[in-house]
């Protein structure tokens, strides 16, 4: 199957998005579908003539362990039945219904802990938790900072439109002080948080920031760039965070598509010799005021052992058969 066929497949059996016209969530959804379609078709191509697979040995699950690639992985891994798109609550949290993969929706703010249990038990799945800025950084803030240290191999997508949409225009943790909305005419009373700085300093091993506004005035294609970076994020072994800067045409009248377009610039244009392995550079870059510039690309990327690597888990934690002799040994302590 080629890229186009997969793209079509990922759009089958889905619901019509219930987002407002021009909603920034569309931009993320399009990028996600394209990235998965490319990854899936590339993966098929690479493994076309590969026969060296090891069975997982769990009936009903057909993914196998590939023995021919340098990095150990499961195959297939990017197809509708091996991907779980999983979200919290909010406008962005509806995405799981608009893409043809297994879909799950946790409670508000809990996409990450849900994926912790899921991915830990199921290393064969590609798990993509996802949500908006309120879900990720207000009600889910405790998880955002703590989850990263596990370096679980998932890719967390956050659409950052800096306002609560579904509940009709309340302030979010990233709302700038100058943002005024109908329900909050004076704007937020607190300074916005800096999610990239928090992410880099709390252990996320891949941090990227993207904007999908089509072509910039200089011809730079933000859509293609985003697809490329998102593919890298999904492939990155470890906790990847991808922030999509998006517009909320209904409640954030400032951060419009045009506003984004004017400020978006690839990191390489801001810092020609940017090295994403250096946390201190990422922190510095994260401090650039968004009113001036929105640098897009990979802010931070390091390779550290994933949770599965640390624990030595190579297969799903399903149908475990505990060694009864060992249990008897444990029981000796009590006799």
């Amino acid at each position: 199957m080629d890229k186009a066929a997969f793209q079509k497949l990922f759009q089958e059996n889905t619901k019509d998005p219930q987002w407002c016209p021009g909603c920034g969530d569309f931009t993320e959804l399009n990028v996600l579908i394209r990235a998965l379609a490319e990854l899936a078709s590339e993966d098929r191509e690479i493994h076309k003539n590969v026969n060296d697979f090891e069975e997982m040995g769990i009936s009903g699950l057909e993914a196998k362990i590939c023995k021919s690639c340098p990095e150990k992985h499961f195959y297939p891994r990017y197809e509708p039945h091996t991907v779980v798109t999983e979200s919290g609550i909010g406008c962005a949290g509806q995405m799981f219904a608009y893409i043809n993969t297994y879909g799950a929706k946790a409670t508000h703010g809990r996409a990450l802990p849900f994926s912790l249990g899921l991915k830990l038990a199921r290393p064969d799945l590609t798990v993509i938790p996802q949500g908006g800025d309120g879900d990720a950084w207000a009600i889910g803030a405790g998880h955002f900072a703590n989850f990263a240290g596990f370096n679980l191999d998932i890719t967390y997508l956050v659409t950052n439109n800096e306002v609560y949409g579904l509940t009709k225009g309340q302030m979010s943790p990233t709302s700038p002080v100058w943002l005024k909305t109908g329900v909050n005419p004076t704007g937020p009373i607190r300074e916005p948080m800096n999610p990239i700085a928090v992410a880099v300093s709390s252990g996320w091993t891949f941090v990227a920031r993207l904007v999908n506004v089509g072509k910039l005035t200089n011809g730079f294609n933000t859509a293609e760039f985003s697809v490329d970076i998102l593919k890298k994020a999904i492939k990155h072994p470890g906790s990847s965070l991808v922030i999509f800067e998006t517009e909320c045409p209904t409640y954030n009248k400032v951060k419009t598509k045009e506003w984004l377009k004017e400020r978006t610039v690839p990191i390489s244009d801001v810092e020609p010799n940017y090295n994403p392995a250096l946390a201190i550079d990422a922190l510095k870059l994260s401090l650039v005021p968004e009113e001036e510039k929105i640098p897009i690309g990979i802010y931070y990327q390091v390779r550290r052992s994933t949770l599965h690597e640390k624990l030595g888990i190579e297969k799903p934690l399903i149908n475990l058969k505990p060694d009864r002799e060992k249990i008897k040994k444990l029981l000796e302590r009590y006799s």
Binding site: L116, G117, K119, L120, A121, P316, L317
Partner: peptide, 11 residues
């Protein structure tokens, strides 16, 4: 929530 996620995965 992690228990729920793992249970959803079949564990």
């Amino acid at each position: 929530m992690a228990v729920l996620g793992a249970s959803y995965g079949g564990a």
